[in-house]
Write a protein that binds this DNA or RNA. Structure first.
Ligand SMILES: [Mn+2]
Ligand SMILES: [Mn+2]
Ligand SMILES: [Mn+2]
Ligand SMILES: [Mn+2]
Lengths: 227, 227
DNA sequence: AATAATTTTTAGGTATGACTAAAAATAAGA
DNA sequence: TCTTATTTTTAGTCATACCTAAAAATTATT
């Protein structure tokens, strides 16, 4: 077992982003999609992919995109574990809002100390999901994808569902959801589907009715209530 | 008020180390002393001092050493605040030993988020000292140097004192102190001073007698009990 | 299949923060 | 003071992680 030197923050960010873009079906990730997400130029991506290729973290063929090796995937999952544990810590222990945690977690996810990560995990009592409802990988890298969750945009009229996850990528979405008092665990009844713009009318816990655009509904995942 | 871009981790480490070496009387800090502490070569120090000089964080004259400007000092104190708060968090909340926190705190001290720092401070209930007894600067940068503390090596026979601070720089010292069951708050009576090697005999809380070398005694600070 | 558009790679730079080796300044010793 | 030793700075490299502009490969369109 050759103990490889720790990755740079940059390398870690690349590996993590490849994991996200690759998705559960492990699609090849294109240079341009990475460039956009990482907010760099395509040429920088090519450079880094070569390096990560040499380090056996991605398998990369020129012009054909890349995928993580199992080693790279292990690393990605571990970074995501840290990111989500820190987000949970910030919200549960330090009273951050769910819209305030991402940038700080982007920094904290690079701290190297397994004792720290596992300590935070235990301190939080081994949470299953982060403040946005995303699953937190366990110590061994297992991820509990809640298979039963579906986008709110796909729910049929009169179904009553529970919010289990929201897209954390947009600060604005998270703030908007706060404003309309929608959070994880909220109960939602879809009362109408407007064909014209594909928006939906919903009724929240408190019987409050409101309209959600298609775009918003697509970024909220729900599951059917198992009462 | 020009909002200056955040410093790099390297720049922060330099500023912090200059603060420590400069001491309370703000002595000029030599290139070599910095090189030794930061574990780099003197030429690298010169390069960085020029840069920090340009940024008005140190005042630096060739061949004459450097001191922090008041701006640089402010930054140094803030980094030290973060370092010590994190150490306290690790020990008080995650059950780290006082010998295990330094390396992790070296990383955590660079996280940029005033909301986070102040959140941790409040979460810990505004601690005054870190796990090694070093004072934690408050939000405004005030440091409560406990003026009454003195090295154990200077205490005269039969005096009864309380341990208030230990030198955190040596992993080995901290482990040794753990082993002999000496911690912050321990009560110590000096029973004998051995002229030959300047070691001392002490009696701990539990009436246990033991000998401490001069070097160990120099790295333990105590204050007289005010009962 | 030929041409055009898009994507990706190469080639050549830049800034940061390290390094070595040699020169210059300062401090110490005779 | 003169000479030597030490400290510090300069000069020139190197690796990382970016960048721009141009070339090459791939994909889409006629
Ligand atoms: Mn996040
Ligand atoms: Mn999240
Ligand atoms: Mn420390
Ligand atoms: Mn400390």
């Amino acid at each position: 077992m050759t103990k490889s030197k720790a990755l740079s923050q940059s390398e870690e960010n690349y590996v993590k982003e490849i994991f996200h873009l690759s998705g559960r079906d492990k699609m090849k990730v294109s240079t341009n999609s990475l460039a956009e997400k990482l907010d760099t130029k395509a040429s920088s991506i090519t450079d880094m992919l070569k390096k990560l290729g040499d380090k056996k973290l991605v398998s990369y063929e020129k012009y054909k995109g890349c995928v993580l090796t199992s080693q790279g995937e292990k690393i990605a999952v571990h970074i995501i574990r840290k990111h989500r544990l820190w987000e949970t810590f910030l919200v549960n222990k330090l009273n951050f809002g769910w819209d305030e945690v991402h940038d700080v977690a982007e920094q904290l996810e690079h701290i190297q100390s397994s004792k720290l990560v596992d300590g935070i995990d235990r301190f939080l009592n081994f949470p299953k999901v982060d403040p946005h409802g995303d699953p937190i990988p366990d110590k061994d890298g297992n991820i509990d994808y809640q298979e039963s969750k579906v986008p709110l945009s796909e729910i049929s009229i009169d179904a009553i569902v529970e919010v289990v996850q929201v897209n954390e990528d947009s600060f604005e979405l998270l703030q908007y959801l706060d404003q309309i008092n929608l959070s994880l665990g909220s109960s939602i009844k879809v009362t109408e589907r407007v064909a014209f713009d594909e928006s939906i009318m919903i009724e929240l816990d408190d019987k409050h009715k409101l309209s959600l655009s298609k775009k918003v509904a697509e970024n909220i995942a729900v599951k059917f209530k198992t009462k």
